[in-house]
Nucleic acid binder design. Structure first.
Lengths: 266, 266
DNA sequence: CGTGATGTTGAGCAGCATCAATTTCGGTGG
DNA sequence: CCACCGAAATTGATGCTGCTCAACATCACG
């Protein structure tokens, strides 16, 4: 596996000591027109299932922008004054510690909503979000969203559902980090959880049939998702491969026999 | 520290092989009258902040029961057909793995709501809940709650807030399990997170002043919260005590200098 | 005073992080 | 087409940390 790296160079980091804003600073991306009433992901569980009338109102609030890979959408610790909806693309959601370690919570995709929990709790963001692929992101100011929620009955319920999704994903992470002592167990369950939530959304887990999903992370990122070092991930993946439990081609990861993978490395 | 163990004997386990239901099976606890409009925790963030009118309706749905310590309120894997509200007492929320390991997610208290996320997602419970102390629990059937949510505008929003709380707690767990490599770091941050959410609800963390909180768990349970073995917890607590970072008396745990604890064992 | 639950302390070992060297691969430019 | 570069993956060697097993101490309670 070699994860897709989009051509944009990695984020500038702190190489430049220039204090003045330079022209190379990325400009504010252009505003795109947006029409939720006529969208390809219409009907996907969260907001995209609103009534026609609500969708019209929904189109009138917020702003839609295109974002390049490696664009930081928000950063943990900053106040959550906007709500983000992923119209297309992929976004990785991370938390970091003061000593430089990184924890990758999940990879969010089209239809996912970011910042809802922090917005409801009126706190700062507890995670950071960064695009992995070219993405289209709709951004709604807090106040506008609260007004929107007040004027449509469904919205509160739908927001609750969306946060419940975030919750489940966080819970699964905590569960697997706490319950699995071995590195193999952590990696296996990370892959299994991912496959099951990514593939078919919450379909009853198919028995021992192969599942495959888009793996847009390199081994280092996968490691920071499972709480393991890069090298350990590499060693384990070759082991899984040798045992015929997984296959990797291009950017797809296939779990050949989920049941066996789970049983052997629980 | 010696955690309070309430006199009720531990759950029967699988000692009895008797297949017939015996008389020693705990009887359904008696239904208690409930009046939310006149409750001591009125005003606590989640449901207890509803309008007078909504509270009246709220009193009319669901059933309130007293529960002894070690009573299982629901178990992971079972369908989430009821919503539980803790009126008084303490409830521990856990997840378990097939090989017998236990993960303690949090200790919920008065005003906390259990089962909201699973109820919204229409899935099975992903955690189990068990009383730690004598508790009063209000139970609301799914359908009644959905109806209630439909007829009051605020309820959806408040449900969202409550799930956001659950989310934050799960996220903090995952974060700390993933970001801290050392056992000391895991235990320290477990204590810090707990103190900060339990003490004053979401007050801005007071600088280097002592925080204390009710520690109703024994070292084994604390270990299953931090992802550590019982023995490691014991060793670390004596170390923390020797360094003057924590004090334990009866069932209270005091963090003498949260800032230093965090800095030293991040 | 006996019993069972909980906490303390020690010894040994396995597993994973870390450091380090090398290979593979994709892209870029000559 | 080839040479070159950098990023990512692979593989090996080593040391430390925390789990496990085990023995014992302490406490609450009847």
């Amino acid at each position: 596996m070699r994860a897709i790296r989009y051509s944009t160079p990695p984020p500038p980091g702190r190489k430049s000591n220039c204090l003045r804003p330079t022209r190379s600073t990325p400009r504010r991306p252009a505003i795109l027109p947006r029409n939720c009433q006529n969208c390809s992901i219409l009907g996907t569980p969260p907001f995209c299932t609103l009534s026609q009338k609500a969708l019209r109102d929904f189109d009138s609030i917020g702003i839609c922008r295109h974002r390049e890979p490696h664009a930081v959408l928000f950063h943990e610790g900053l106040p959550a004054d906007h709500l983000l909806i992923i119209c297309s693309g992929r976004v990785k959601v991370t938390a970091s510690s003061s000593n430089g370690r990184l924890f990758l919570l999940r990879v969010a995709g089209p239809g996912d909503i970011l910042g809802l929990a922090a917005l409801h709790e009126r706190t700062v963001h507890r995670v950071s979000a960064e695009t992995l692929a070219p993405s289209t992101i709709k951004s709604i100011p807090r106040a506008d969203f609260v007004r929107f929620m007040g004027s449509h009955n469904d919205v509160g319920r739908i927001a609750a559902l969306s946060i419940a999704r975030e919750y489940t994903s966080a819970l699964l992470s905590a569960r697997r980090l706490a319950l699995h002592t071995s590195a193999a167990g952590k990696l296996a369950s990370t892959l299994l959880d991912w496959a099951r939530t990514d593939d078919g959304r919450d379909l009853p887990t198919p028995a021992n049939l192969p599942i495959s999903f888009l793996m847009q992370l390199n081994q280092e990122e996968l490691g920071s998702m499972a709480g393991l070092s890069r090298e350990t991930v590499s060693r384990l993946l070759t082991r899984f491969r040798r045992e015929g439990l997984v296959d990797q081609s291009d950017d797809r990861m296939t779990l050949n026999n989920p049941g066996r993978l789970e049983a052997r490395y629980r």
